[in-house]
């Protein structure tokens, strides 16, 4: 039996912003169906690494990379890789909720509209997709009568869930989260964390977080990065209880960061 390829695998990945090297020889394997967190002090390359996984880094200009990234077994730098298809499969949620200035409904079906020929777009298909996506993130009950409200008028927590819901109609397999809770209060953070745990297994989730406690609460595996290099990658419990590297130990003790 052929074993399933990991969700994400990088081999000796280095990345430069112009002359500045942001990633240095990163080799990691992210397992399917788990929540993996990327932790480390500011500027260690967590977000950069995250953005590599759907090649959205290239849109920020002046980026050059070396090394390989395989997503779901396919090298995403192969010539036949379509960025459109890659980004459908690997969605991203940002630090600040970024709903588009459209209605809640239009936000959820935004991706569908982009990727379906207009003739095949049926109102019923869209309605169904909205209900399914919003239910999956636990927003449908609160928002079912507010579907034509402006998404930007929602609570931040709802906005963030909506941003997650916006990815789901495209049936992504991997969801990247870039500090998804840092703009939210305690309740919002808890809600998003519970949501992540609920989506676990169905989706592979990679989360960048500044908050070590959060990494500890939600993630199965943890990757500690420092100055563009991966220092340690292990099960979350192991990393926090028995760090192998002294730098990891010092970071989780709060000696620097």
């Amino acid at each position: 039996m052929k074993t399933r390829a990991p969700a994400i695998e990088t081999r000796d990945l280095s990345l430069w912003y112009g002359g500045f090297q942001a990633l240095d020889g990163v080799s990691i394997v992210v397992k399917r169906g788990l929540i993996t967190s990327l932790i480390g002090p500011s500027g260690c390359g967590k977000t950069t690494l995250l953005r590599c996984f759907n090649r959205v880094n290239e849109r920020y200009g002046c980026v050059s990379t070396k090394g390989e990234i395989e997503v779901l077994g396919k090298n995403i730098y192969d010539h036949d890789v379509s960025l459109v298809e890659l980004r459908k499969a690997v969605g991203m949620v940002f630090q600040r909720p970024n709903p588009l200035p459209l209605s809640v409904y239009e936000n959820v079906v935004f991706g569908l509209r982009l990727h379906t020929p207009r003739i095949r777009l049926r109102r019923s298909t869209l309605d169904e997709a909205v209900e399914k996506a919003l239910s999956e993130v636990g927003l449908f009950r609160e928002l079912k009568d507010k579907l034509d409200f402006k998404a930007t008028s929602l609570l931040l927590e709802q906005q963030q869930k909506l941003c997650l819901a916006r990815l789901l109609p495209l049936k992504p397999e991997i969801i990247l989260m870039d500090e998804p809770c840092s703009a939210l209060d305690v309740d919002g953070t808890r809600a998003i964390e519970e949501l992540m745990l609920g989506l676990r297994e169905k989706y592979t989730i990679v989360i960048v977080t500044h908050n070590m406690a959060q990494a500890r609460r939600v993630s199965d595996e943890c990757i500690f990065m420092l100055l563009g290099e991966v220092v340690e990658h292990s099960r979350t419990a192991d990393l926090f209880l028995a760090p192998q590297h002294h730098k990891t130990a010092e970071y989780i003790e709060g000696r620097y960061g």
Partner: peptide, 23 residues
């Protein structure tokens, strides 16, 4: 136009033209 609108678009796989047109 805020960069976050564009980011939102790119990350659901919009091409540049779709981003321009839609957002």
């Amino acid at each position: 136009v805020p960069a976050s609108f564009r980011e939102a678009c790119w990350n659901v796989g919009a091409t540049r033209w779709q981003t321009i047109r839609a957002v």
